[in-house]
Amino acid sequence: MSRFRIADQPFDIAPLRARLLHERAGAFAAFEGWVRDHNEGRPVHGLRYEAYVELAEAEGERILGEALEKFGILDACAVHRVGDLAIGDLAVWVGASAAHRDAAFDACRWIIDEVKARVPIWKHERYADGHAGWLHPRQTTPSDAG
């Protein structure tokens, strides 16, 4: 079963958490990225995510595989939304289970940063002033995290 998925509809996080349960796991960490009502000082009304799905799922899978090796965690998975999202909607979910909390926290943080930097997904924001546009950042930094 693939660890990374692009979802074009809202998704339930309970089954994602459940699939990371493991008898050897003593820790689980999750990250949720939500749609916020502003970006760089501009009020945002809503947004749309678009992905190159085939490549996004392959690259996401690669990131999660790398995380398993790099942090020695037991398992990890992630789902990223595409389509129209409203303020407060869940945009991305990442979870990692590990024997101990340090690895779970570290892997979770690393995965979301890599997803933001590498996976072909684009955000189109609609602003309160009527403008709208695609975000093509020069460099993705953790402070951009949703």
């Binding site: 997803v115 072909p120 695609w134 093509h136 950042p137 020069r138 993705t140 951009d144």
Partner: peptide, 10 residues
Amino acid sequence: IAFIPPVSGG
């Protein structure tokens, strides 16, 4: 062939 502009997921 796909041209991939700077990504902005997350």
